[in-house]
Design a binder for these strands. Structure first.
Lengths: 137, 137
DNA sequence: CTAATTGCAAAAGCTTTGCAGCGCA
DNA sequence: TGCGCTGCAAAGCTTTTGCAATTAG
């Protein structure tokens, strides 16, 4: 049994073709940040016969299961990526769309401090830096 | 001539009723973070006869003119606010929707450092902290 | 007067949902 | 076999656009 299959079972999801394919795709994608449409088109391209609705449903299920994280970048589009064990934020190039992941402990610590100062308990945060990479300047 | 009128003229925009009303609304709104639909409904409620398309067009023009800032909160909805002279980020209560603005220089500095480390020139960033305020715990 | 602006309606994207049939366990 | 899952099509939302009528300067 493959790795993907085990992950699905552990999440309590039936091992179906679309789920396996989507999971494999997200795990193997070079830039592993994909919109639902990216996933849909990639599957069509490799000959799979899935519906866009299924892609959305599966990605949402994966998100609920904690296997995948959903990011809302600008322009009101959701981008999905495999959930990693280590937290990270994103640096996005507005020229070529490249996404760089980073983790900065000082920022994390300050965020916590800001929340406390305002009487909040922090549950989540979204930090996205937009800029131009060296190739796009 | 009112204050709003001057702001519009300075931005090179004709002083029309919808523009004046929208600007006044954003300036007077208690929680001054409003979606296009919030603005549209508020105007209808106060008897103005505007179209939703006009609200979107005017808000986009205001954004181009630097009078208004557009934030993409979760759920793929744009939220607009009067541009302030000082940069700030947002702390959003997931219980009651309260939005707290904050500025933290340490975070700003670190963001700059992260961008540089990765060979990026920073053009913009979005930092939104989600949590629960003292009333919602 | 004339170009900018508006409202309406239609369209365009992204995402969700209803439903009948298919398939995993 | 039974319930979950899928594909298709249709609907829902937010946002944008085309166009004729209106209006500010």
């Amino acid at each position: 049994m493959t790795n993907s299959n085990q992950e699905l079972k552990k999440a309590g999801l039936k091992v179906t073709l679309p789920r396996v394919r989507i999971l494999e795709l997200l795990e193997s994608s070079p830039d592993h940040h994909m919109s639902a449409d990216d996933v849909y088109r990639a599957l069509l391209e490799q000959g799979e016969d899935v519906g866009l609705a299924t892609v959305y449903r599966v990605l949402t299920q994966f998100e609920s299961a904690g296997m995948v994280e959903r990011n809302t970048f600008e322009n009101n589009v959701s981008v999905f990526e495999i959930a990693s064990d280590t937290h990270h934020d994103h640096l996005v190039c507005q020229g070529c769309g490249t996404v760089v992941e980073f983790h900065n402990q000082a920022i994390e610590t300050e965020q916590q401090r800001v929340a406390e100062t305002n009487g909040f308990v922090l549950t989540d945060h979204a930090l996205i830096l937009y800029g131009l990479c060296s190739d796009c300047r």
